[in-house]
Design a protein around this nucleic acid. Structure first.
Lengths: 194, 194
DNA sequence: TGTACATCAGTGAACGCGCGTTCACTGATGTAC
DNA sequence: TGTACATCAGTGAACGCGCGTTCACTGATGTAC
């Protein structure tokens, strides 16, 4: 098991990005500090700048990682359930708006976790954020039933993101779960015609 | 024009809350500093604690003010347009998701401006935030067409909030406006049956 | 009406603290011969 | 195989800065007589 040059540094780099991808979702962009992330990885803060040019560069990398992870987990759910004859759209709705996601901010969709702060970030983070939103909408578009209008992807994405945020703001309780349940029902009734 | 005792202090208090209500929507909870708000009002930061017990207490007051202002402006639009035979639901959708609201973060709905950060705040701010979300949903419920299910209010609110956030994250450009337009169309088709 | 005093809103310096960033240094690993 | 040196990931002290909060003070306004 030989190592390519730099592989130790690259491994550390990945661990920093992973920790940051969880931290931005749990604590928000503003709640993430360089020292916190490094401590989470088991390092001291001084070494950070050997890996990233700035805190902002970390936020960009963390957002991309969070988006990819979240996308992958939805895709896995869709694939698993496709074997049982469940439509992609239903899997998306029932996964994204599952009650369990009320509490799992840290590993969930970064657009739902960070959406309202995206317009307030630096240029670099705003660009990465817009890209992330576009990808979310594209993912939704790919899972819409064939008879749904293509332009519906944006609204469906908005409904997923907004309903999850409202439910989380109400809390992990009956109020929050009621909002999720109503959203699941509404989306499925509207787009799953049969 | 006689003054009741304390009226000068009360006027200042209102101006602080007003400035903070705009600041939290523009810069987010985390982006608002005591000194900034006081400076905006034309005062120095030292006097702040004669008005509020803490920065947190200001955030609570500012959120309530922002919610009331935003509610009032929707209500005014609904009333004005009711005279022209426009339904309350249509006025809500077309006002909340107007292209102009892409840029006017500062005076818009605080739930759209702050939603994703609500679960991250102190107990007091979270309680005020949940209350604000409940009121938003209740307002939407009051404007739903008579034949819509009452349980739809939460999803409609989620769609309004989420679509506006996605549009803002995409920017005040064709992409952002396309999301708003699709959301308006979808909501009106779904709930305005005639 | 005029003077002496009390009240009170706001000032501005100071505090302890945590942040992002820099940098001289350490100690382990890899390389040359 | 062994020694000398170079490379390199990570350390930890230090920096300048802005934050929330406190507090002794100021100066204007209102009240008592």
């Amino acid at each position: 098991m030989s190592r390519t040059p730099n592989s130790r540094k690259e491994e550390t780099h990945e661990r920093i990005v992973d920790a940051a991808a969880r931290a931005i979702r749990r604590h928000g962009y503003a709640g993430v500090g360089v020292a916190d992330v490094m401590k989470e990885v088991g390092l001291t803060h001084g070494g950070f700048y050997a890996h990233f040019a700035s805190r902002d560069a970390l936020l960009v990398a963390a957002l991309e990682r969070a988006g990819r992870d979240s996308y992958d987990s939805v895709r896995r759910a869709v694939e698993t359930r496709a074997g049982k004859g469940v439509s992609g759209f239903r899997s998306l709705v029932e996964t994204y708006l599952a009650d369990g996601h009320l509490a799992s901010l840290e590993t969930g969709c970064p657009v739902a976790a960070l959406g309202c702060d995206m317009p307030r970030q630096s240029e670099a983070v705003r660009v990465a954020s817009a890209e992330r939103v576009q990808r979310l909408i594209a993912s939704v578009r790919g899972l819409l039933p064939a008879d749904a209008p293509r332009s519906a992807a944006g609204v469906v994405a908005g409904t997923l993101v907004g309903s999850l945020q409202l439910a989380r703001a109400l809390g992990d309780n009956a109020d929050g779960r009621a909002v999720l349940a109503a959203a699941r029902k509404s989306l499925l009734q509207q787009y799953e015609s049969h």
